[in-house]
Simulated assay, not measured.
Amino acid sequence: MRNTFARIALLLVALTTSPMSAWSENLKGTELHAAAANDDVGSIRQLLSKGADIDARDENGRTALLVATHGNKIGAAKALIDAGADVNAKDDINDSPYLYSGARGHLEILEMTLAHGADLKSTNRYGGTALIPAAERGHVETVRRLIAAGVDVDHVNNLGWTALLEAIILGDGGKRHQQIVELLVEAGANVNLADNDGVTPLQHAHQRGYREIEETLLAGRAR
Rank of each mutant, 00 (worst) to 15 (best):
T216S: 06
G160Q: 11
G71H: 12
R137P: 01
G209K: 09
I54A: 09
A37P: 00
H139F: 03
H139P: 00
K121C: 02
I109V: 14
T16D: 04
E31N: 06
A149L: 08
R125D: 00
A194C: 12
E111Q: 13
M112Q: 13
L15K: 14
V199S: 13
N157Q: 11
P19E: 08
G174S: 09
D195G: 02
A34V: 13
L32W: 07
H70R: 13
L10C: 03
G42N: 12
G173R: 05
L184S: 10
V41S: 05
L131E: 11
G84A: 02
A79Y: 09
R125P: 00
D86S: 09
Q178T: 00
E111R: 15
H177R: 06
G174R: 13
E166N: 10
G150E: 07
I109R: 09
G173A: 02
L99H: 11
G105F: 08
E212A: 14
T113P: 10
R2S: 07
N88H: 09
G160W: 10
A22C: 04
G198C: 10
L27K: 15
G75N: 11
L110A: 01
A130V: 11
E182Q: 08
I168T: 07
G160T: 12
E31C: 08
I109M: 00
T142Y: 09
